[in-house]
Design a protein around this nucleic acid. Structure first.
Lengths: 330, 330
DNA sequence: GTGAAAGCGCTAACAA
DNA sequence: TTGTTAGCGCTTTCAC
């Protein structure tokens, strides 16, 4: 039993009012008398009327849609963010058009978002060509890069203070007296990796220590496992490792414990970054740096909706404080 | 530098063709001469033209949007699914309008989806009033319930064979000779919980065993921790626990090991359900039942797009095979 | 193959 | 407050 589409004109006919009266009844902040509204609502209920948001968007020029671009969800940091972001945007009256993206199809995806008239875009994709954001900005659509930034870009960004977070880890490991402190890098081209590493190096330097060794995990579990094995194949293996994010740190810990048979933190200290939910699970109990996900999402939404409202696409960069969370792995 | 919106008429003017010619050029499978197409494309490129998908949807009656409803993303099963589902739908030319939902606002959310003219809906929300699916079906919009079903509903469903999966676990634990086998339930009202438990009970019964004890974790980590403590407060604590999903099983294992100081599987066996990525992480190495997420997503997409295409909303139920994955916790 | 014209369902002036 | 009117940007007959 499929009802034929019922339009505002149908409702108008039944309610014995003009079509615009129906429109007004369903438009927030329009002036309708109580009586008209009443009649319209009755008719609408009877017919099962539901305004067509697409038609509305077409004429109002506001789609009420925000595009969200994500690269992968296996790193638990992103589902957490996606959930919060989604809820927040919904509360504010926006819908989320979500896209998963690989390196290859970003152009297609951004094009799609623009065709659907998104009013704003959040990009939480690791690999991200800098022109994409520009394409959006050129169309007057504000973009917020989440957990990453691109220097020469009109896109706003929200990050935590990765430089400071890295520094805190550098200080911590040096202060604890570790002798051979290593770093497992994330994806080399990412701003998070650059900043965390730079901060880390600085934090060590402040204590007169230099990084003992460095391998690359590229933000994947498999990469991290490989990077760990490389470190332990060295003549002088590390006694502490700073891993560029928690997602990799778990893989590192698994290799260290179950493949190399070492104990944490007895034989080797591990520190991660992000403070994803699993970091506090007792099986890992990972010392890490918290990214303030709630504050980061709040900032994202604030910047985005602010720019949507005032129709200005200016670059804003929010950098939120990072906090060391000391648990049992260092 | 915000470009004013450029429409097909603008392109037509520059290309010296009619507006319909422009439309045809951008409509798949319309007839345009090579020359016209060429001229249109040049003009479109020059102006930075991009068809307005909303206007297109309005007239064609096809939005190309699928609504996806999710309850929470902290159970890693769902991010995994969401990612696959999203990618698959994108490949097939659909966009995903994603909604997070709590128990309270489902009506609002479904209403919103319908207003945005979604062509189909996937619901992966645990708590789900049965009338929601009906509302969609009444509007001729196919609905697929993912990982759950509602008997008296026009909505299709895709699940794994939870009954069989539970049975396998019952058999396994009985065969391994455990004496006091307990069950930690998920959310009582969910079809997954009902089926897994029923299968489990049957699997035990086949070996002449009855379930020793039962508590409820309600599919949350905290609930599972509580449920575990309850079990171990019994005069006769269990020597094996079947936990209704992996997400809870991790919490159970953490309590068992780090709070109760017991070893797994030495002192107690644990079996989960889902086979989420973390189940294979060495820190847990969880024996569990695999839900074939790829096949489940494929079935979901197939059912949904099938019904969208043939405009028929008939109930289909796909039940995919579950498989026992034996690891180190039993 | 092409252009003219109609209209998808709605909002937003404008007059009344 | 209300109805009338004019589109939003597009697809799709329909003649040519």
């Amino acid at each position: 039993m499929v009802k034929p589409t019922v339009t505002s004109s149908d409702v108008a006919r039944v309610a014995n009012v003009s079509q615009s009266a129906v429109s007004r009844t369903f438009t927030h902040g329009a002036s309708v008398s109580a009586e008209t509204r009443q009649r319209v609502m009755v008719a609408a209920d009877e017919l099962g009327y539901r305004p067509n948001a697409l038609a509305r968007s077409l004429i109002s020029g506001k789609s009420g849609i925000v595009g969200v671009l994500v690269a992968y969800l296996d790193n638990q940091f992103y589902p957490t963010i996606l959930e919060r972001l989604s809820r927040s945007l919904q509360e504010k009256g926006f819908r989320v058009l979500m896209f998963m993206t690989d390196t290859g199809d970003q152009d297609v995806v951004v094009n799609d978002m623009l065709q659907y008239q998104v009013e704003g875009v959040v990009m939480a994709s690791a690999h991200l060509s800098s022109q994409l954001a520009r394409r959006c900005a050129d169309n007057g659509i504000p973009v917020v890069l989440f957990n990453r930034y691109i220097a020469a870009s009109p896109a706003s960004s929200v990050t935590s203070d990765n430089l400071e977070g890295g520094r805190l880890v550098g200080n911590l490991l040096a202060d604890k007296g570790y002798q051979r402190i290593a770093y497992i890098a994330g994806y080399e081209d990412s701003s998070t990796n650059r900043d965390r590493e730079a901060g880390f190096t600085k934090g060590l330097a402040e204590r007169g220590v230099v990084c003992h060794a460095r391998t690359v995990g590229a933000y994947t579990a498999e990469g991290a496992a490989r990077a760990t094995r490389e470190l332990f194949a060295l003549r002088e293996p590390p006694d502490a490792i700073f891993v560029a994010n928690d997602h990799m740190a778990f893989a590192v810990m698994d290799v260290v414990r179950h493949e190399l048979g070492l104990s944490i933190p007895g034989d080797i200290a591990i520190v991660g970054y992000d403070d994803v939910p699993q970091a506090s699970w007792k099986a890992y109990d990972l010392t890490t740096v918290e990214q303030p996900s709630v504050a980061m999402v709040d900032a994202t939404v604030e910047i985005l909706l602010g720019q949507i409202e005032e129709k200005s696409v200016t670059r804003r960069a929010a950098v939120l404080p990072a906090r060391l969370v000391e648990r049992g792995t260092a």
